[in-house]
Amino acid sequence: MTLHAHLVVTRPAFTLDISLTVAPGEVVALLGPNGAGKTTALRALAGLTALARGEIVLDGSPLHTLSVEERPIGMVFQDYLLFPHLSALDNVAFGPRCQGVSKAEARRTAAALLDRVGLTDHATAKPRRLSGGQAQRVALARALAVRPRLLLLDEPLAALDAHTRLEVRSQLRRHLADFDGATVLVTHDPLDAMVLADRLIVIEHGAIVQQGVPAEVARRPRTDYVARLVGLNLYRGVADGSGVKVGQLLISTSDRLEGPAFVAFAPAAVALYRSRPDGSPRNVWQARIEGVERHGDNVRVHLDGPIVAFADITPAALADLDLTPGQQVWASVKATETHAYPA
């Protein structure tokens, strides 16, 4: 059940043009900032948004020529869109009924699915009586009830509060693991993407900017957006064997490469000093403090200078250094804590 898709959707001020392939049993996450076109891509796969060009092929047969209701898909919407006038059971039984299954049979299927997501006790409840997490599970069961070959999830966890989210995320991961068709999910949350997906596709401005397995994407971001998502300082420059020249600054790295390259390092790897440190083979540059904010248990310092960077330091260090915005400091990062890779 391999999905091959080339999706082109044109809007007055926006064009989406992406290609993706999803293997059977694989979960691919479309990740990107708001307005990048990820939901549009999902709607195009479902047939809810018309393609300007391109094609969608599932198991060798074209999907894009079919209307929405003819496509072998299951879709979970961002706010679930459970039919308010039907019970949880009838919501799940809706799809099978549309496929011509008898009422009793459809309800049996629905009951089994509700059991699988642990909601047997809530079968007769109307959607407005369900909690967010329960509604999400009913929505998943409803999408699975049509035995889809392609499962589409639009921000499946976005409507949940932080606590419920944690719990539902791990349940969803289990259910997705059991599903043998292709799954495409859309999210703007890197954590959801990392936990749920086998592969990430990052979309910005309607185009794919990076894709790969989550660990690879996290380690080697290729755009500022991805770098911010995974919490790294990222620069593009030219490598000359021992380091990467970023603007005026040469950042020495332990990776040996030549030509256009990215160099990335974590904010926690950056050390700050009031006067120029000496000794050890470090990258040192003078920077100006732009701002200071709390970041978890640490303090994140925004630095301007030859490169724009974040530095995470402890509150104690902040007090010792007596840092204030506008002040000049020295920043340094060890070559061994940087990571360079071809651009």
Binding site: A46, I73, F94
Partner: peptide, 8 residues
């Protein structure tokens, strides 16, 4: 739309 994706 949700109903259509369910085959209605």
């Amino acid at each position: 739309e949700a109903a259509a994706t369910l085959g209605a």
